[in-house]
Amino acid sequence: MGSPIRTASRLLLAMLAVSVMMPSQAAQLVRIGAAHFPPYTVRPESGADTGLLPQLVEALNASQSDYQFVLVPTSIPRRFGDLKQGRIDMAIFENPAWGWEDIPHTTVDMGLEDAEIFVAQRLPDRQQNYFADLSGKRLALFSGYHYEFANFNAEPQYLAKNYNATVTYSHDSNLLMVLRGRADIALVTRSYLSDYFLRNLKVASELLVSDRIDQIYHHYAILRPAAPISGEAFGKLLQGLRDNGQMLRIFDPYKIAVVPVPHSEPASHVAN
Rank of each mutant, 00 (worst) to 15 (best):
R182P: 01
G33Y: 03
E116S: 15
P262G: 13
R10K: 13
Y163D: 01
W100D: 02
R10F: 10
R126F: 09
Y163V: 01
F152A: 05
H36Y: 00
Q246L: 09
A257V: 09
R224G: 11
L179A: 06
E94K: 03
I213D: 08
N162D: 11
G144C: 00
P104V: 01
V178W: 03
P38Q: 03
R212Y: 14
A91R: 10
N244G: 00
P23C: 01
E113D: 11
R249T: 09
D252M: 04
H263E: 14
A26Q: 08
Q246W: 05
A62D: 11
L208F: 10
N272V: 14
I92P: 03
A14S: 10
A165S: 02
A17G: 13
A27L: 03
L223H: 10
A97Y: 06
S194T: 09
S24D: 11
V270G: 09
Q127C: 09
V18D: 05
N162K: 12
Y40H: 06
D49F: 09
E232G: 15
V261E: 04
L193K: 02
L241M: 05
S170Q: 00
M15P: 09
A14M: 06
I216S: 13
G2E: 14
G81L: 11
S3F: 05
D89T: 00
L16K: 10
G2A: 13
Q246P: 10
K202G: 12
R212T: 10
Y220G: 07
A97K: 07
K137H: 03
T7M: 11
K84P: 09
G81D: 15
L16G: 14
V30C: 05
D211H: 12
Y163Q: 04
P54Q: 13
S46W: 08
L238D: 05
R87H: 09
A150L: 07
L60T: 12
L11P: 06
E58F: 06
Y145Q: 13
R199N: 01
I76C: 02
I92N: 08
K236P: 07
